[in-house]
Every structure is written in C-alpha cells, then in structure tokens.
Amino acid sequence: MLPTPTKFTLVAGAGEGQTPLNAFDRALLEARAGNVNLIRVSSILPPGAEYVEELTLPPGALVPVAYGATTSTTPGDRIAAAVAVGIPEEGFGVIMEYSGHTSRQEAERIIRQMVEEAFATRRLELKKYMVRAVEHQVVRTGAVFAGILLWY
C-alpha cells in the first residue's frame, strides 16, 4: 500500500526549447518540478494535507502530481495552464487541471468553474480556493505546466 501524501504545493512554469519535450522540461524546471519523476494522479487532495509554499524534493523522487500542460510549435500562439484546489471545512479536497490555447485569465476563469462544479456535484461547500496559472507566447516551441505536487 502506498502512503497518503500529507503536504501539497501549487506550481506553474513556462519554457521554450528546440523540441516540445525540451520546452516541457524547461517549464517543469521553472515550476520547481524538474529533476523528479512525476506520477500523474487524479484529482483528490487527501484529507488534512497541509499546504506548503515550497517542497524540498530529492532528485529522482517519484512525486504524485495532478497537472495541466500543453505545448505548441506555432510562433505567436498563446498557451496557458492552470491548476486549482477547492477545500471544504472537513474531508478531502478536489483538484482540477486545465490547459489550452488561451490566456491566463481565461484559464483561471475556466478552472474556477470546474472546481465549483466538482463541489456542487459532490454536495460539498467550498471553504478555501487556491489557484496557480501561467501563460506563454510561443517564440518557436513553447510549453506551459501547472501542477499540484503532493508529498509526504
């Protein structure tokens, strides 16, 4: 059985590279999520998980993360990624991820609606809302990444 994470943080970054993967790697590094192995998880924040401004992650660690990301090879494209978490008074939180060819403001608007719908579906009352988003205008090959890193 895997342990349940007890800490979380929200990160976001953008990057340019020679290839989409290199651009994504730079976005991860800018977001402070590089040099580890990300394990993509679905969107539930464990009950009692504590928010921390920054996590100290050992290189090569296996890190659970819910994230949105996109890349583009079209110069001038505007791309954005956002993550948000809604937290009720008690119990688990709900994480949502979004990315697309849009502005940061539009990504933040869309993700807020996503969290509100998730809470309504679960009949939970939203007590705390946190969001992190990033926007990038592509020069050659660009990427954006926004994630909620979970840790122990």
Score class of each variant (00 low, 15 high):
residue 52 V to A: 10
residue 29 L to S: 10
residue 84 A to S: 06
residue 41 V to C: 01
residue 109 R to H: 00
residue 86 G to W: 03
residue 86 G to A: 02
residue 93 G to M: 01
residue 89 E to I: 15
residue 37 N to W: 00
residue 47 P to D: 01
residue 56 T to E: 10
residue 100 G to Q: 07
residue 82 A to T: 08
residue 59 P to K: 06
residue 37 N to H: 01
residue 85 V to F: 05
residue 29 L to T: 10
residue 60 G to A: 06
residue 108 E to N: 13
residue 89 E to P: 15
residue 107 A to N: 05
residue 99 S to H: 09
residue 78 R to H: 02
residue 67 Y to H: 09
residue 94 V to P: 02
residue 104 R to I: 07
residue 25 D to S: 05
residue 101 H to V: 11
residue 106 E to N: 08
residue 58 P to G: 14
residue 74 T to V: 15
residue 57 L to Q: 04
residue 89 E to S: 13
residue 33 A to E: 12
residue 61 A to T: 04
residue 106 E to A: 00
residue 80 A to E: 04
residue 63 V to K: 03
residue 65 V to H: 07
residue 54 E to A: 07
residue 78 R to Q: 09
residue 90 E to H: 14
residue 77 D to C: 03
residue 52 V to R: 13
residue 86 G to F: 00
residue 102 T to K: 03
residue 84 A to D: 00
residue 26 R to V: 09
residue 81 A to M: 00
residue 26 R to H: 13
residue 57 L to P: 02
residue 92 F to Q: 03
residue 82 A to C: 10
residue 43 S to I: 13
residue 83 V to I: 12
residue 105 Q to W: 12
residue 82 A to W: 06
residue 76 G to Y: 14
residue 110 I to D: 01
residue 78 R to M: 06
residue 54 E to H: 11
residue 91 G to W: 07
residue 42 S to D: 08
residue 87 I to F: 08
residue 68 G to P: 13
residue 105 Q to K: 11
residue 76 G to T: 05
residue 74 T to M: 15
residue 77 D to V: 00
residue 105 Q to L: 12
residue 58 P to V: 05
residue 64 P to C: 04
residue 109 R to V: 02
residue 66 A to W: 15
residue 53 E to P: 08
residue 31 A to V: 11
residue 36 V to Y: 05
residue 38 L to Q: 01
residue 27 A to D: 05
residue 105 Q to S: 11
residue 29 L to Q: 12
residue 64 P to N: 06
residue 35 N to I: 07
residue 65 V to M: 12
residue 65 V to K: 06
residue 46 P to K: 09
residue 48 G to F: 11
residue 89 E to C: 14
residue 88 P to T: 07
residue 61 A to I: 04
residue 73 T to H: 14
residue 71 T to D: 06
residue 68 G to W: 15
residue 50 E to W: 15
residue 49 A to C: 05
residue 102 T to L: 04
residue 76 G to L: 03
residue 96 M to Y: 15
residue 78 R to K: 06
residue 54 E to P: 07
residue 67 Y to R: 11
residue 81 A to E: 03
residue 44 I to M: 11
residue 63 V to H: 01
residue 94 V to C: 07
residue 53 E to A: 12
residue 58 P to E: 13
residue 74 T to G: 13
residue 83 V to C: 06
residue 53 E to K: 09
residue 92 F to V: 04
residue 85 V to H: 02
residue 59 P to V: 08
residue 105 Q to V: 07
residue 58 P to L: 05
residue 33 A to V: 08
residue 52 V to C: 10
residue 34 G to D: 02
residue 58 P to M: 06
residue 27 A to S: 02
residue 98 Y to S: 14
residue 65 V to N: 05
residue 93 G to I: 00
residue 65 V to F: 08
residue 48 G to K: 15
residue 104 R to M: 04
residue 67 Y to I: 08
residue 44 I to A: 12
residue 54 E to C: 09
residue 84 A to E: 03
residue 43 S to G: 09
residue 46 P to W: 04
residue 66 A to N: 02
residue 82 A to D: 04
residue 68 G to D: 15
residue 111 I to G: 01
residue 88 P to Q: 05
